[in-house]
Amino acid sequence: MNRLGLLSAILTSLTLFLPFIPIGIYFWNELTSTAEINSFIKLPVSLINFNDIQYFSWGILNQDSFNLWINNSSIAFIISFIFLSILSLLAIIFSLIGSTKTNLNGKRIMSYNFFALLFIILYTTLGFTIYSEEIFGIEFGLFEIFLYLDYGFYILLLNLILSIIAFIKHPIE
């Protein structure tokens, strides 16, 4: 069992399925005296935060409304859906399957996880810059996207490093 691979799957799942990580969870609201599950801090897992609009692996969150990448027929959104949502899902599947197989086949599958994450990160930095006018409404200069990177991107970057280590140290019996 490749535990780092499992950890990589968990981290990718966090960025694909959640809008935020709840920290400081409480089960009782002292102000309204009602039972509720909420948290004091919501750590956003968005890849980009531009003008208070969050761009996730699954879509866009604009204050109180959300939009999946697939819900828009624009070519830039379809490509974002493929490079972010589909590749994230594939990365989760690859890392889950690869981490359970302790043979050369498993190691090969773990390498697919690494490449999936690499393409997601490259698309976030380069692809979003290329399609910035369609996605963000303004044209970004080269490397301007780095000003708007959010916690989700850094989680993916950490995940990429983990996936390299998981690939190198993959147990073969």
């Binding site: 920290i23 400081g24 102000l31 004091f40 801090i41 956003p44």
Partner: peptide, 17 residues
């Protein structure tokens, strides 16, 4: 004061975010 930040009178005041 918690490991993730602080709350004052039941409202989050200072945190890493």
């Amino acid at each position: 004061y918690f490991i993730w930040g602080s709350i004052q009178n039941g409202i989050s005041s200072l945190n890493s975010i």
